[in-house]
């Protein structure tokens, strides 16, 4: 609040290493799983932003992706299937001083949690949402998810899936109050880190779809893009993610894209090959729910008690023989 305090806080606070954000549990994801890269990117972000572990919360639903809070040495909430977003919104609204992240998967978010997804975009609470999209239900040993490619053979679609996959980006951009939409892939860790970093700094709900390898149940799904870097389309802009020379050397297909251009973002979101990665859309002016509903009075214990008592008093029935208070 006051600069002198900031200055002194900096002198007193401890600097965190990446290991400070690693829990004692060893990740149980498969070798080669893209979730590992997402976990590492998150730990790097926490370290680089010096987030106090006790002021950081990871909320998840159900699925491989949703194991992530267990591996972070921060507060975590492994929620119920599809309900990571409303839980995270509740945490953020009650404790706006916390940094709240959501780990959710393509099944968790886009299927059973789809209603919460859309309304979370509408509310635009200040959350960083990571959609781990491996195109399959992995934890339950391979069932088709909403993003499974057409023809995916799985336990629920043994003859191959017949429904076209959802495109989470176009749907998100279709919600008028979406304020931050990005796409990253687990196999370009530097870009993944930059995107997540920008998402964290965005005030409002930042929705980051991360295409993630599942070597066990969808082996080779992303190989065409991994093995041919020219099929990756890196979105670069001074107001988005900038592509440095080293990255551009590996991934030469770079395109300037202004993240404030919603129409261009929608057009890019529909492209699947080359695969666009970077910040598609950002509008910091979209109002956040916590701003709109702010009543200007702290929710202290006294205020809550006052309100409860006032509410209960409305229904108090005095015994007829009791003296008038």
């Amino acid at each position: 609040m006051i600069p002198v305090a900031d200055c002194l806080l900096r002198t007193a606070e401890a600097h965190h290493d990446l290991a400070d954000y690693r829990s004692e549990l060893v990740p149980r994801w498969c070798n080669g799983c893209g979730d590992n890269a997402i976990l590492t990117a998150m730990q790097r972000l926490c370290r680089d932003e010096d987030l106090a572990p006790e002021k950081t919360v990871f909320v998840s639903g159900i699925g491989c992706s949703s194991r992530l809070p267990h591996y972070m040495n921060t507060y975590g909430f492994h929620g119920t299937h599809g309900r990571a977003l409303p839980i995270a919104e509740g945490v953020k609204l009650s404790r706006p001083d916390l940094s709240v992240f959501v780990s959710t998967g393509d099944g968790d978010c886009l299927s059973i949690g789809a209603a919460h997804w859309l309304h979370a975009l509408r509310y635009n609470v200040d959350l960083t949402v990571l959609l781990h999209d491996n195109h399959i239900y992995g934890l339950t040993k391979k069932q088709a998810s909403p993003t499974s490619p057409l023809g995916t053979k799985s336990n629920t679609t043994p003859m191959g899936s017949v429904l076209a996959p959802l495109n989470p980006l176009t749907i998100t951009l279709g919600v008028q109050t979406a304020s931050f939409v990005a796409q990253a892939v687990d196999w370009i860790p530097d870009l993944l880190y930059q995107v997540i970093s920008a998402a964290y700094r965005h005030k409002g709900l930042s929705f980051v779809r991360i295409l993630q390898r599942c070597p066990e149940f969808m082996p080779g799904l992303f190989d065409p893009w991994i093995q041919d870097p020219k099929r990756m389309l890196l979105l670069s802009h001074a107001d988005g993610v900038t592509v440095g020379p080293a990255l551009a050397k590996v991934y030469p297909n770079v395109r300037a894209h202004d993240p404030s251009d919603r129409a261009a973002a929608r057009a890019i979101a529909e492209v699947e090959d080359p695969l666009p990665v970077g910040i598609l859309y950002r509008d910091p002016a979209v109002p956040r729910y916590e701003e709109l509903r702010h009543v200007g009075e702290l929710r202290t214990v006294e205020r809550v008690r006052r309100g409860l008592e006032a509410e209960l008093d409305r229904f108090t029935i005095w015994p007829e023989d009791a003296a008038t208070p």
Binding site: N31, N36, W187, P189, V250
Partner: peptide
């Protein structure tokens, strides 16, 4: 810098 921390090699 391009490593994705997938644990294949370290395993």
């Amino acid at each position: 810098p391009r490593c994705t921390t997938c644990n294949e090699c370290t395993t």
